[in-house]
Amino acid sequence: MDSLVVLVLCLSCLLLLSLWRQSSGRGKLPPGPTPLPVIGNILQIGIKDISKSLTNLSKVYGPVFTLYFGLKPIVVLHGYEAVKEALIDLGEEFSGRGIFPLAERANRGFGIVFSNGKKWKEIRRFSLMTLRNFGMGKRSIEDRVQEEARCLVEELRKTKASPCDPTFILGCAPCNVICSIIFHKRFDYKDQQFLNLMEKLNENIKILSSPWIQICNNFSPIIDYFPGTHNKLLKNVAFMKSYILEKVKEHQESMDMNNPQDFIDCFLMKMEKEKHNQPSEFTIESLENTAVDLFGAGTETTSTTLRYALLLLLKHPEVTAKVQEEIERVIGRNRSPCMQDRSHMPYTDAVVHEVQRYIDLLPTSLPHAVTCDIKFRNYLIPKGTTILISLTSVLHDNKEFPNPEMFDPHHFLDEGGNFKKSKYFMPFSAGKRICVGEALAGMELFLFLTSILQNFNLKSLVDPKNLDTTPVVNGFASVPPFYQLCFIPV
């Protein structure tokens, strides 16, 4: 009986604490739906499609509103004006990374994606500088992407125009580009180590996009005490870190300090320079996690976009025909596509942009946080508050993009057929937390897609009208449904 009384008292205290925290903070924060004790607004949000729920709530509470995930307040920004004001106009104040408990377990605050403060700034600055020195957006990395595009075309030829699921092959190409940047090595598509790495990356994007992960991140005790797919994700990350550590040891034994070959060499050189400046942010643990982040951000996002792009091109054969006509006119058949071609191919450029806009790969991006107490639109948001960005509300804005739910390359073309930029184009987020590999991803999408369409016609196994382009999961990332196609050599 005594234990029951204690339990009831504990629960009562928890409920009172929950109510007090919510009521004391709500006077400062933007308005929002009334949260339930302990669980907050979790029942009012469709976990399978958070973005749709945010759109519905914005119609009631406006472009800036507050939700509670458990006891934790989260300020939501919906629509271009609110997102721009926060991420661009007040970029420094909104540059923090929001709480992501599962990532905390995986990387302990290291790396480039989930770190904060001085650690994040130094690692991000170093990573950007190193990638630029190796030619991100310049010639040397373009050579690597072109080489991988040629290998991709050869792998597709091996399908002999038979029906195939493109998931694996389209994942190999961007993964190999990242391998060449980090390890100075590309792998054969049949290499077992490479296959294991690909498998872990593919599993992780599916797990991260599941409703279960949303629950884990908002009720963090689940991570330590409950079984579930989150444990598989943590094991996959541990596998990748151990693999990278092996490569780091190989580099330490063979590195030429006067001739760095890749990202690992550059990081080890930085560690050597910083060894007298303790404590340094440049450690082996930081290198492991930064490399894992580059793999995660640079492989599955690009391969998922490529997979979605081919599905949309199957669905819209008239678009595919126009792209192939432009390829034939500008590039021809006797040389590989290059980035200089893009400025002469406005329709193809528009298609690449429209694919990214339409699929809305990361509907709410990753959570941000404010780095200080900030007054925002007459609300006071306390330091450390998590900020949720609705990228969907920007990419699918119906004023900027008429009929935003329709796939239409003319969203990025003017009346004369010239490519038209849009400030609403934010597939990689915006501001200080914009994806480090934005330029690389854009290069890969253009070169891989043009190389495929230069060499193959795409054949659907069903009537294009019957192809479903609805994402199968739409949590962290929008993942396309399973499909097969035939690559018919031109």
Rank of each mutant, 00 (worst) to 15 (best):
K383D: 03
R342S: 05
V5G: 11
G431E: 05
C10Y: 03
L57C: 08
F187S: 05
N218E: 09
R26E: 09
N202A: 12
T304W: 07
Y61A: 01
T283N: 15
L87V: 07
F295M: 12
Q454T: 02
P427T: 07
Q324A: 08
W212A: 07
L128I: 14
F267G: 05
I327F: 00
D373Q: 07
P221L: 09
V462A: 09
S343G: 13
L312A: 03
R144F: 13
I169A: 07
I359D: 01
F194G: 03
A309S: 14
R132M: 13
D191V: 02
T130L: 11
G416L: 15
F100M: 15
V351N: 00
I123H: 12
S242C: 08
N418C: 12
R97T: 09
A441E: 04
L440A: 02
L131C: 06
G70R: 02
E93V: 12
M345K: 02
D165M: 00
S209H: 12
W212G: 03
I264Y: 03
N398Q: 15
H251N: 06
G332W: 02
F267T: 04
D188Y: 08
F239K: 10
V462R: 10
V145M: 03
I327V: 08
N41H: 04
V355Y: 00
C266D: 07
G384M: 05
V370S: 12
K48S: 12
L287M: 07
F376V: 08
I123M: 15
S53H: 13
Y424E: 07
D408A: 03
P73T: 06
L485K: 00
V145F: 00
F482A: 14
T450A: 11
Y189K: 02
E415S: 09
D373T: 07
L9N: 00
R157C: 09
S220M: 13
H276R: 12
E444C: 00
K190V: 08
R150L: 10
E415V: 11
Y68I: 02
N176H: 03
K190R: 13
V370C: 09
L268F: 06
L461P: 13
R186S: 02
N218S: 14
T283D: 14
L449D: 00
H396R: 14
G137I: 11
N289D: 13
S303A: 14
T385M: 03
D397G: 05
P63A: 06
N289R: 06
I50Q: 11
E328I: 10
T66C: 04
L17M: 11
F187D: 00
P489V: 00
I223F: 11
G228D: 02
N455S: 13
F194A: 05
R26A: 11
I39S: 02
A103V: 14
L4H: 00
K160Y: 09
S3Q: 05
E81P: 08
N277T: 09
S23P: 15
V5N: 09
F187A: 03
V473D: 09
K84V: 09
E285P: 04
R307Q: 05
D373M: 02
S220W: 15
A82G: 03
R108T: 10
I74W: 07
R377G: 07
D143C: 14
F295Y: 04
L77A: 03
E155S: 07
E274G: 11
L36N: 05
L445M: 12
G417Y: 09
R26I: 13
E300N: 14
